[in-house]
Write a protein that binds this DNA or RNA. Structure first.
Lengths: 246, 246
DNA sequence: GAGTGGTCTAGACCACTGC
DNA sequence: CAGTGGTCTAGACCACTCG
């Protein structure tokens, strides 16, 4: 195990961060799959030749970032979008009336295209590289609430089709994770208010021109690599976007 | 210093959380004011009769919650809304074009009223208790972008007036903090898309009926006491609401 | 140089899980 | 019961700030 070169080192970083980086690499390399347990703290301490407390601090940070999940008495696990508790992590929509409703994803279309300038820039692709576009509806209690258009890099998601989407139970990200080995780590969202265009209005059962919440999202996987660009139109007649500031 | 009653205790909580609670109480009691330094970790350890590491863990959590701010080599400070770095903590609005613009708050009106059923419920007041209502405009680069209507408990903010609002430089929360001793700790926001009514449209220089982002916020101070209810209408023509999910 | 927070260690013990 | 994460301690040393 490398030690930190004391003092003068220009790239100084504390030991526990180096450990964190090593664990992160192991995660990226797929050494442990989502949902699996990683080795115990004492094991990792031996492996990296540091004390258990140092490993602990590394894991602490990664747990705070939702990369790992600790379970007392059982072990530490790689976070997974298959975990039902993670379902609402990236979906901030709640009913105005309070309570929780089950969401249902209804895929509408899925086709291939070439990356235009905007998609290329956002997804970090070259102009003209293949992309996949998905249109889908999100329903709460049988009523359409969100219409999404999702842009994905074609290479990473080769084999994605409307059939695959329709077969899958659970969230889109759990599909991406189990079928394509792509784990979404974090996302940026930009919200605006827009007027409903004709087709969105029909899909969401609202009058054309009525105000909708436009949510643009870019999602990132390990190494801050962008792997999804999504634009959703939310009908906020019976639901709202909920956010906690602290 | 109390110790934790081992095992059987029904109200078990680790020592560092008890310390955290004690520090929190000291904060609420105003033992140290916002911006001031709290005693050093070793001092607090002596005062509470625990090890420095235990105090450290308590402070770690409070720093993560933005209640305290650590500064290596200097000390640990009570977080303050006067701190310019805290300015954008509760304002998620960013220009579409990127970059950062200075925001300017323009108070329009300030009047007294009695709490209706909704305000009473949200602010945890009795029906008919005095409240203060503020209307104000938020401008970016001299252009109006947000119109806010803000409901405050009259008792807590006695003495608030349009003149006071106009005199103050800086954010509203910094005014609340320095003048009324109320520190906002966290907030909940609910976003929807709505159509601009007549008066809002005029204030924001947009056509009547055009889509606006409605942001309802409830802010809390120590002890999760609600002390502000706010409804803002955001023009998202040149700005958007930015949110990070992780 | 003195004082602060930040890191790292080693060891003891507690709390929870599952066999 | 053994194995896991969770807490607590005590002490050493590093990094940063300021007078």
């Amino acid at each position: 195990m490398m030690r930190q070169t004391p003092a003068e080192s220009p790239t100084f970083s504390p030991l526990y961060r180096q450990i964190k980086e090593l664990i992160l690499q192991a995660l990226e390399n797929g050494e442990w799959r989502p949902g699996e347990a990683i080795p115990s703290e004492t094991e990792l301490a031996q492996r990296f030749n540091v004390s258990q407390g140092t490993v602990r601090k590394a894991i602490d940070e990664m747990a705070a970032e939702n990369l790992l999940v600790r379970k007392q008495g059982k072990g530490t696990f790689v976070a997974s979008h298959n975990d039902p508790r993670a379902f609402f992590r990236f979906l901030r929509l709640v009913p105005l009336s309070g309570g929780i409703e089950p969401a249902k994803s209804v895929p509408l279309e899925c086709w291939r295209a070439k990356a235009g300038p905007e998609a290329a820039r956002i997804l970090n692709l070259k102009l003209g590289e293949p992309i996949i576009i998905v249109r889908r509806l999100l329903e709460f209690a049988e009523k359409p609430v969100v219409v999404d258009e999702i842009y994905l890099p074609g290479e990473t998601f080769a084999g994605l089709s409307l059939e695959v989407l329709k077969e899958h139970q659970g969230s889109l990200y759990s599909l991406f994770e189990t079928r394509f080995g792509v784990r979404m780590i974090r996302a940026e969202e930009r919200l605006r208010a827009v007027a409903a265009d004709r087709t969105s209005a029909e899909l969401l059962h609202v009058p054309e021109g009525s105000p909708l919440l436009s949510v643009e999202r870019v999602s990132f996987t390990y190494g801050d690599r962008p792997v999804e660009w999504r634009r959703g139109l939310y009908s906020t007649a019976a639901h709202c976007y909920y956010n906690e500031l602290s």
